[in-house]
Structure formats: structure tokens, C-alpha cells
Design a protein around this nucleic acid. Sequence first.
DNA 1: TGAACATATGAACAATTATTCATATGTTAT
DNA 2: ATAACATATGAATAATTGTTCATATGTTCA
Lengths: 110, 110
Amino acid sequence: MAHEDHKDIVKEIKGTMPDADTLFELADFFKVFGDSTRIRIMCALFEKELSVCCIADIVGMEQSTVSHQLRVLRQENLVKVRREGKQSYYSLEDEHIQKIFEMGLEHIME
Amino acid sequence: MAHEDHKDIVKEIKGTMPDADTLFELADFFKVFGDSTRIRIMCALFEKELSVCCIADIVGMEQSTVSHQLRVLRQENLVKVRREGKQSYYSLEDEHIQKIFEMGLEHIME
DNA sequence: TGAACATATGAACAATTATTCATATGTTAT
DNA sequence: ATAACATATGAATAATTGTTCATATGTTCA
């Protein structure tokens, strides 16, 4: 134990924090934003819905890679799919995404 | 090439996206939020500045682990340090953090 | 100066994850 | 039904990353 009021502070702060499960979920959610391929995919989808092959060309990666990452985005409810003929069209599912992007961009621009 | 307008769409979207470097930086920034230990550290710091040993006790991890993660947070300008005697006191450096947390929490609560 | 304590750092290990290749599934048109 | 195309998925690999132990650095006080 370090300083005089250590114990009190630990107890005080612990009381104010969301439960561990919630913070675990939160970390998992942000993990999705922590990859540049996924960031670029989401960024592309800001404009409009896109087919998988368009996304692959835009971000310059294999169709397979993009499919895998789209699955990750789907699992976290960040994008939704729509089938039209042979193509799958993906679009953003959540308006929080843009705000989170803005916050992030503001931060790194400082 | 997939559908009729594939090429046009790819060109159009590419034109609207921030440059690759920026998006890479953005991903690196969000990567910091993608770990539950760091999330819990930031969450604890919402209340007030804390010493390393308090933080370690609050999140229930080794002092060493916490020090390593605080360095990561420092490198991304998310926290700042203040020495007072033997202790180092850390605090949040950026008001964006709280907003990003809020957005994330709102998302996972749906 | 040296002992005691708080924090930081380096090296090693375990675990997670992004990417690719190969292939399966799903869809359309002949 | 079969060919042609778009997308999804499984397995393998390479790379990144979080944690811990051991130890170094920094600070206070006797």
C-alpha cells in the first residue's frame, strides 16, 4: 500500500465504475475501430452502400480479406447487408460511427 | 470487375476519403481503446487523477502491467503525468475521451 | 551514503489477430 | 443442369500485442 489515503481512494473509485462486463464489451467494440482496413471500409461506407467487390478495390485488398472484415463489422452491428442478385451490398448500421470518427479525427489533428 | 458502374463508384468513393496516412493514424488511436485494461484505467481516471499504485489496485493488475499501459496512453496523448514525491499521478489529457466512451456505451446498450 | 519505497523498462512468453490461398456456397442466365 | 460470377468460409501463417518476472531508475528520509 502506497500513500496515506490509498485504500479510501481505491474504494471510492471502484464504486463509480461501470461493471467489468460492460467495460469488457466496450473494449471489444472499440477493438473493431483499431484496424486500418476496417477503418477504411467504414470510411468508404460513409458515402453510400457498396458491394464487396467495390470495397475490395477501394481499400486495395483481397476480396477474401474484405469479406472477413465485413463479418467482424457485422458481428458488432456496425454494418448490415442486402443481397441484390450476385452482389452483397453493405451499409453502415449506426449513426454513432460517424461521431466516433469525428472525435478521433479531432484528437489526432491536435 | 463486377457490375456495370463498378469503376465509376470506386473512383468516386476514393475521391471522398481522407488520405491513407490519416486513416492509419486513426486506427492506431482507436487501437488504444481496444483493450479492457486500458479502458478500465481511463474509466478510473474520469473521476480524478490517480497514482500508479491506486490504479493497479483498482483494475486488479500488476503495477508493471499498469505502467506499461500508461505508457501506451501517454504516447497517444490520452493521459499526462505529474510527479509528486515518490508517486506519479496520472490524469486524462483530452475531453474527447469521455465523448468517445459515451458513444461506445450508447452503441453497446442497444 | 544507504535503505526503503514507487515507478519504469527490458526480455520472454502466450495469446490474439490480420491476411492469404484454396475452396465452398449462393445466384443468374443459358 | 451447367457454366460463370460474387461472396463467404476454413485452415495456415506471420505479425502484433498484453502480461509477467526481474531489474533498473528515481525519490525520500534517516
